[in-house]
C-alpha cells in the first residue's frame, strides 16, 4: 500500500498528464464527427453573446459595403420580379406564391466565421426561437454558404462549405450531370467537383449549381464556375476545380432556407427503404 502511494506521489504529474490527454482525445473522437457535435460549440449562449458584441463593432466599419451589396441584390430581385410578372398573368400568381411555398426564408447575420482552418464553422445570430433547426441550408446573394448543425435558443452554428467534413451534391448547369462537391482544404475560393464521367464535355466558365436532390437546398443555387478540368488516364471520372462564387472572407448577411415539405419528403423516401 505504501509503495503504491509512493508511486502515485512520485509520478502524479505524469498520471495527471495521461488522464487529461485521455479526456481530450475522448472529446476529439466523440464530438468532432459531423452530426454529433452537440456538446461544445459556439452556438451556446455565452460564446454567442461574446461574438455578437464584438461583431457589432466590426460591422460598423463594413456598413457601406453591406449597403452596396443589399442594393445590388435588391435591383436584381426587382428585375427578376418584373420579368416574372410579364410571363405570368397576375390572376394566377397568388395561387403559386401562397399555398405552395416550399422554402421559407429566414434572414440571419453572420457573427463569427473563419476560413483559415481545415474545418471551418459559421455562427449565426438566429436560433430555435426564430425557427432555425439543424440541417437547414444557408445561402447568400452570391451563392451557397453552408448547412446548420447546432441550434441554441438565440444562436446557431453551421458547417461552412469550407469544411472537409461536408460535401454538397452539385451539378453542371449546362449538362445536368451531378456529383459531390467538396472543399479541397487549401484555397478558400476553390472546391473540387468529383464523379463527373469523362465523356461529359466540361469547359472553363461552365456554371456549377446545386442539384436539388436533397431536401436542404432547392435546385439551381449558384455554387461557382469551373476553372480547371483534368482527366487522369485510367480514371473513369474527371477532376473539376470550381471557383466558388461566395466570398467566404466577407460574409455578413445570409438566408437560412427552411424546407416546409421536408417531413413529407422524408416520409415518402422512407417508404422506399422499407420495401
Amino acid at each position: 500500500m505504501r509503495n503504491l502511494l509512493n508511486f502515485l506521489y512520485r509520478y502524479h504529474a505524469f498520471i495527471l498528464f495521461l488522464l487529461l490527454e485521455l479526456l481530450c482525445f475522448t472529446l476529439i473522437f466523440k464530438y468532432n464527427s459531423f452530426q454529433r457535435a452537440r456538446f461544445l460549440n459556439s452556438s451556446n449562449q455565452i460564446t454567442g453573446l461574446v461574438y455578437r458584441n464584438f461583431h457589432s463593432a466590426e460591422e460598423f466599419f463594413a456598413l457601406r459595403k453591406i449597403n452596396d451589396r443589399l442594393a445590388i441584390e435588391n435591383s436584381n430581385l426587382r428585375s427578376q420580379l418584373l420579368s416574372m410578372s410579364e410571363k405570368m398573368p397576375l390572376s394566377i400568381s397568388p395561387l403559386i406564391n401562397d399555398s405552395n411555398e416550399v422554402y421559407r426564408v429566414v434572414p440571419a447575420k453572420v457573427i463569427n466565421n473563419s476560413v483559415n482552418t481545415q474545418y471551418n464553422y459559421i455562427t449565426l445570430d438566429k436560433g430555435s426561437n426564430d425557427g432555425i433547426k439543424p440541417d437547414m441550408g444557408i445561402v447568400c446573394p452570391d451563392g451557397l454558404v453552408g448547412v446548420v448543425v447546432n441550434v441554441s435558443k438565440n444562436y446557431s452554428t453551421a458547417l461552412s462549405l469550407l469544411n472537409g467534413r461536408w460535401s454538397v451534391n452539385a451539378k453542371l448547369a449546362r449538362s445536368n450531370h451531378f456529383g459531390p462537391l467538396q472543399w479541397e482544404g487549401f484555397n478558400p475560393y476553390i472546391a473540387e467537383l468529383n464523379e463527373i464521367p469523362y465523356h461529359v464535355k466540361v469547359e472553363p466558365d461552365d456554371e456549377v449549381v446545386t442539384s436539388g436532390y436533397s431536401v436542404i437546398f432547392p435546385e439551381g443555387v449558384m455554387i461557382g464556375k469551373v476553372v480547371k478540368v483534368e482527366h487522369e488516364k485510367g480514371d473513369n471520372f474527371q477532376k473539376i476545380w470550381v471557383q466558388l462564387s461566395t466570398d467566404f472572407r466577407s460574409l455578413y448577411y445570409v438566408y437560412v432556407l427552411d424546407n416546409t415539405q421536408k417531413s413529407e419528403l422524408k416520409e415518402i423516401e422512407e417508404l422506399i427503404q422499407d420495401e
Binding site: 479526456l23 481530450c24 475522448t26 472529446l27 476529439i28 468532432n32 457535435a37 456538446f39 459556439s42 464553422y121
Partner: peptide
C-alpha cells in the same frame, strides 16, 4: 469552446 474544436 470558442472555435468548435472540442479537445484539439
Amino acid at each position: 469552446i470558442f472555435s468548435s474544436t472540442p479537445g484539439i
